[in-house]
């Protein structure tokens, strides 16, 4: 059984952390995964960097650039993740843009994910129609979940379609924005979260974009199965000792 499904069946208020592979140092990828699990993360999203990440804000873009400059590629990443499952037990997703996947080859990518024990993917610029036609078969064959994003502007009909195509969770963007903004749950956002909750989707939902502290995390959890933190974590591990930065960061949420 897929680790993602298992997690959502047994746990509430799930905390998922995004970080960029190969950042701050190229060899940090596995160590960060281990530290996050040790300090209470429920799920991991490891970003494979891209030169032109249009859906991301300056913090994640800068971390991506640094990682690429240090020699990160998908090939290097899968090499680093070779013994992933000896180090971490929680679900792991890979997140990145479609062009590196295309160049790696969709089939090769799915194979490599399955081999190292990756449970799913988030590819924000992969359109639903393309996924259905060219990726879905391969993803399902390798037991990989594909996670789609929805925004306050996504129409109900489209949300139902996404729900039908997804088999992990749905990523609710708190607002239509690039990463790195603050979550403010005003009336319209609350209405949007409420609307999604009332739709009774078959997939669980996770709220992302704008979660940076306990307050915003708790708020997000009142509307969804959990929340995703990216920018705030990437910023927190920029300098200093990794073990210290990760444990300090996680205290806020697990204390």
């Amino acid at each position: 059984m897929n680790r993602i499904k298992e997690l959502f069946e047994k746990k509430k208020n799930i905390l998922s952390i995004y970080y960029t592979a190969g950042y701050p140092n190229i060899s940090d990828t596995i160590e960060i995964a281990e530290l996050l699990e040790k300090h209470g993360a429920d799920m991991l999203e490891i970003g494979f960097p891209y030169s032109d990440p249009v859906a991301d804000g300056p913090v994640i873009q800068a971390s991506s650039k640094q990682s690429l400059d240090q020699g990160m590629t998908l090939k290097v990443l899968f090499e680093q993740l070779k013994d992933l499952r000896k180090h971490v037990k929680i679900p792991v997703l890979l997140m990145g843009y479609v062009n590196p996947v295309l160049q790696f080859g969709v089939e090769n990518f799915c194979n490599a994910c399955a081999e190292v024990g990756v449970d799913g993917c988030i590819v924000p610029d992969l359109p639903m129609v393309e996924y259905e036609e060219f990726y879905k078969g391969c993803f399902e064959e390798h037991n990989l979940s594909n996670v789609f994003l929805i925004t306050p502007q996504t129409a109900d009909e489209r949300i139902h379609k996404i729900d039908g195509l997804t088999n992990g969770f749905i990523y609710l963007l708190s607002s239509s924005a690039t990463t790195g903004k603050n979550l403010e749950v005003g009336d319209t956002t609350a209405q949007y979260f409420g609307r999604i909750k009332a739709m009774n989707l078959k997939n669980p939902t996770m709220i992302g974009f704008g979660i940076s502290d306990r307050k915003t995390f708790d708020k997000a959890c009142s509307y969804a199965n959990g929340a995703i933190i990216g920018t705030a974590f990437v910023k927190a591990i920029e300098n200093g000792n990794l073990e210290e930065s990760v444990s300090n960061f996680m205290k806020e949420f697990k204390g």
Binding site: V98, P127, E130, L149, T151, T154
Partner: peptide, 11 residues
């Protein structure tokens, strides 16, 4: 061709 865009740009 096609439209390889994140969901935020879809509408």
């Amino acid at each position: 061709g096609g439209a390889y865009i994140p969901e935020m740009l879809y509408p």
